[in-house]
Design a protein around this nucleic acid. Structure first.
Length: 507
RNA sequence: CGGAGCGUAGCUCAGCUUGGUAGAGCACUUGGUUUGGGACCAAGACGUCGCAGGUUCAAAUCCUGUCGCUCCGACCA
């Protein structure tokens, strides 16, 4: 029993299936009867609420306000920006009717065809652009700094819970500025907000960089991104920030009279993160016993499990549990009260323990009669694995006072582990042969976990990118900012290159 | 939209080749014994065998059609 894992298969045996099982075991979400859509259950949604409230505070702190724009977008709006059309047309849900009538067979059928079909927003640049065009007349009306929390629909062929679903939750920031420079600064600023969120809240080390032209958001001049590595060594684009230049302003007619009295088009940006962050979190941190949550986004920081083997000590144990819960709740972690559950359910203690392990709660505290006698609490850290050997006895009197430090310590250890993993699997590659070897699985039928991030020189050609994608399913994840430019030669063509870029397989 | 596979209890699946009363494990309910890491015993509830036709005395099983799902490709945050 000792070496049994809570999740089967393990990560090594079958990573995709392990991922699904972690979600099921933690009761986070399930597939809905509508293909590609998911039901986010309370345990999953609570994580989103944490992400949402913490990010929202950062948006407010950088001068943004929230608003809400319509779900339905006139079809003609999408047509206004050519690249945008090409990017999204293939995955749009289209609304063509507005009424149902019972047919002769008693079944409902759509009637009342719309004169202009509506699309369900895949993203909102066009409809927000139309609003901004109405709102902006003068340079005095700029900047506009708005964000919306919304759902969007992209009709995906191959859905995966949290990572890629037909409908997903996200936030999309949309700003309009007087100058290019100001919009570029906004794009950088929001990327930085995402990077900070990933590092400090999600314990995710990310590469920050720029997308190559072929990976750019449709219609953008420049797309910046944060890229995370998960445990099968693939990349996940965890957030994006786009400098849209004047492309959408021209398409939507966002014009203003400048300080010089000339009519100008505004400069716009957009930026977003989605419920995909939850999928990234799961794949980056969890182990073969289930979810591991970084404390800042964990809906529950500490679960207290009363151990009540004998009825005569039960009341005293429960009292001690409630007392500790109150002490913990009085403590703060990054400004918020510590979130504590006391699990008093009358079920087998072992099962109870495993349930919380699978849900990824950072700290489990057991209190039983022996602890009462000794003035101790028995503490298990989720990030240290599930073995009972890692549990430690702490003095009950001082435990609550140290909880914030303990949670921060857990956060740091999760981050460090993810960082070490990423660094181990990021290789500097200097030849085409090494590159192909790095990304080719040894077992073609059932590929093992292989590859990682490759830092290689590239001549900037889209044809080379396309060829690599075709051969290996490997793409340029980003041109990283934090690597100092280094002259070299493209490993594919031998042509000069200014910088190494990050190649990887991706979700 | 191509290629493959699968639809049987809440879940995972057996049964189908060779037609004959609908099965197992897990989960669930009740009672009891347990309880410091996934407990045990007993009793119980749960099914239009994806759907529609056909063959047959008889279909989960054979035939035809149909719908859905999963995986692999193409596409994507």
């Amino acid at each position: 029993m000792a070496d049994k894992t809570a999740i089967t298969p393990t990560r090594d045996q079958n990573f995709p299936e392990w991922y699904q099982e972690v979600i099921t075991a933690a009761d986070m979400a399930e597939n809905s009867e509508v293909r590609g859509c998911m039901v986010i259950k309370p345990c999953g949604y609570a994580i989103w609420e944490q992400i949402q409230s913490q990010l929202d505070a950062k948006f407010k702190a950088t001068g943004h306000k929230n608003a809400y724009f319509p779900l339905f977008i006139p079809l003609s709006y999408l047509e206004k920006e050519a690249e945008h059309v090409a990017g999204f047309a293939k995955e749009c849900a289209v609304v063509t009717h507005h009424r149902l009538e019972a047919g002769p067979d008693g079944k409902l059928r759509p009637t009342g065809a719309l004169t202009e079909p509506l699309i369900v927003r895949p993203t909102s640049e066009t409809i927000i652009g139309a609003a901004y065009a109405r709102w902006v007349q003068s340079y005095r009306d700029l900047p506009i700094l708005l964000n919306q929390w919304a759902n969007v629909v992209r009709w995906e062929m191959r859905p995966r819970l949290f990572l890629r679903t037909a409908e997903f939750l996200w936030q999309e920031g949309h700003t309009a500025h007087e100058t290019s420079d100001e919009a570029v600064k906004e794009t950088d600023q929001m990327l930085h907000v995402y990077e900070e969120m990933a590092r400090e809240h999600l314990a995710l080390p990310v590469y920050v960089g720029r997308k190559s032209a072929s990976e750019r958001f449709p219609g953008a001049v420049d797309t910046l991104c944060i890229e995370a590595m998960v445990q099968d060594r693939k990349a996940v684009q965890a957030g994006t920030s786009h400098f849209l230049g004047q492309n959408f302003a021209k398409a939507a007619g966002i014009k203003y009279l400048s300080r010089e009295g000339k009519e100008e088009h505004a400069w716009t940006t957009s930026w977003g993160v989605s419920t995909r962050l939850i999928g990234t979190l799961i794949m980056a941190h969890s182990d073969d016993d289930g979810l591991i949550l970084p404390p800042r986004v964990a809906p529950t920081h500490v679960v207290i499990i009363p151990v009540t083997p004998k009825p005569d000590t039960k009341d005293a144990v429960l009292e001690a549990c409630n007392k500790l819960a109150a002490e913990l709740r009085a403590q703060k972690f990054h400004g918020d009260p510590v979130r504590v559950d006391v699990d008093t359910r009358d079920i087998n203690g072992g099962n109870k323990n495993w349930e919380w392990i699978k849900k990824g709660v950072p700290v489990r505290v057991e209190i039983g009669p022996r602890d009462l006698a000794g003035g101790t609490v028995f503490v298990a850290r989720r990030d240290k694995g599930s073995s009972s050997k890692t549990k430690e006895s702490h003095p009950a009197a001082t435990f609550a006072a140290g909880i914030s430090d303990l949670l921060q310590n857990i956060h740091d250890s999760i981050y460090e582990r993810a960082l070490a993993f990423r660094n181990e699997n990021t290789k500097v590659i200097n030849s085409k042969e090494d590159f192909y070897a790095f990304f080719t699985p040894k077992n073609a039928d059932k590929p093992e976990i292989h590859g990682g991030f490759a830092l290689a020189h590239w001549n900037g050609s889209a044809d080379v990118e396309a060829k690599i994608k075709e051969d290996l399913k490997v793409t340029i994840r980003c041109i990283p900012f934090d690597k100092t430019p280094e002259a070299g030669t493209c490993i594919f063509t031998g042509e000069p290159s200014q910088q190494r870029v990050i190649f990887a397989k991706s979700y």
